[in-house]
Design a protein around this nucleic acid. Sequence first.
RNA 1: GCGCCUUUAGCUCAACUGGAUAGAGCAACGGCCUUCGAAGCCGUAGGUUAGAGGUUCGAAUCCUCUAAGGCGCACCA
Length: 556
Amino acid sequence: MNIVEQVKSKLKQEIAAAVIKANLATEEQIPDVVLEIPKDKVNGDYSTNMAMQLARVAKKAPRMIAEELVAHFDNSKASIEKIEIAGPGFINFYMNNSYLTDLIPAILDAGDQYGETSIGNQEKVQVEFVSANPTGDLHLGHARGAAVGDSLCNVLAKAGYDVSREYYINDAGNQINNLALSVEARYFQALGMDKSMPESGYHGEDIIGIGKKLAEEFGDKFVEMDEKERFDQFREYGMKYEMAKLKQDLEDFRVSFDVWYSETSLYHNGKIDAALQNLRDNGYIYEQDGATWFRSTEFGDDKDRVLIKQDGSYTYLTPDIAYHRDKLERGFEKLINVWGADHHGYIPRMKAAIQALGNNADTLEVEIIQLVHLYKNGEKMKMSKRTGKAVTMRDLVEEVGLDATRYFFAMRSADTHLDFDLDLAVSQSNENPVYYAQYAHARISSILRQAEEQNLAAAAQGDFSVIQSEKEIDVLKKLGEFPEAVGEAAQKRMPHRITNYIFELASVFHSFYNAEKVLDLEQVEKTTARLALIKAVQTTLKNALALIGVSAPEKM
RNA sequence: GCGCCUUUAGCUCAACUGGAUAGAGCAACGGCCUUCGAAGCCGUAGGUUAGAGGUUCGAAUCCUCUAAGGCGCACCA
């Protein structure tokens, strides 16, 4: 807990104590103390709505309650300068903010670790994201999923959760067969022979590339080959090729996974049968019309779902249930799936499965990533995976730049439709929000370089009481909020909160920078203190940017 | 037809999950560089939070209805 969190929690305790002392409510009746930072500074550093919340219990007017509360409040205990009652009954606390300077050595000391909290309590969380079929390039939607999923994992880890990142490889089933047939067609075509694409084949550029590569490497070796054998080889080759590309693309996007989980493996290690048996034992399986059904309606799904088709093969759901069962068997307490909006209809049956296996429904959380629309020259760009005309993640990064792309996706909450304005993201100007934060970091780096040239070093510790101007206090307050911002972003699964925080921190810094000079040879003590302050900002900015996968450049 | 998501300034989005005068960026307008990076800062203007009811001290936020847009609704994956 840093000093800000300590002061806050102290304040909360004192508020609760005052409620009891003033006889406004009993220990059981007292609601959670809500402490907010008012939007406008004239309303104090902190504010509580306790008086309003107690209105019903105490059966009195909020303002009266507030007055009684304040009368019983022990000012001496929590760095309070004054307390005021305002509006409908807000109690506003004006702090003696000198304690905030303790943050500076604390942040410098923590370094990369600043922002870490233990709020996650080492809960074992597994996050599954991207999980795109290895049948073509990752496109725009995957990029958003990758950015959000990765940022979420970073945030969770920072907040003290034990996070595992996982990618589910759909390497079984029809789509892979279609991949093999698509590769086959492209191979023949590369040899100048006529072969039409399968009905639901993949028309992406990359498959054409595979066909060409095969033709160059092996000539017509496969033409005369037994059809079945050729199919198997192309299937294998196509898969490996696609997976390698996919991993590389994700790595280039600064996204890595702890586990790549193969769907096919579930077929080979008996886990599907085990899952089916588990469901059967629990009484949620029945046979009808020659198929095997899962009674998912028991848990609120619209209709029961087929697990084994009439032809004896599994539906997509069946191995997926086995997969989720396996996740739980591996000891994860919380499963978070990041899915595209087109899969949201799938949530009820998956949650039903989780429950049918004997777990709480909210063991599984699904974060839905809404669609991305790309705009260029003010026009919406059409995309379709089938025709292969989708804008790929690689194209996007190439055109926009990695940092800008990651920042752009991390900026917005995941459950809102997103318009990606290419012209804006590409622009190397103040129109592009990513530079705002990076610029602050580069600016600080530049000052620190110059300080070094003048043999001035940031004070490591000691007396920071010279830090007291309004702008400086604003910066300190914002710095102190970081661990809390991380904790909230993690608990609410809203990584975009971090991006908001980054913007706010950069903003208070820029504002300070323009108002006051850091380097001043006339006032060495103040200079070294301020160098330490901006160094703390630099550290915090860097840590925050790292959470959303954006670099913190020292020069731009 | 049913379900989920969305609707906030001209545009793109926030708003600490029920709090005070709804905030940023871009676009518009006006200021600030012979001193640490002007990719910055300061200011002005811009709103019936899609619409109508309801819940309460208090609603962009919760409930109901309506409208618009998106995505789903397989023995596909």
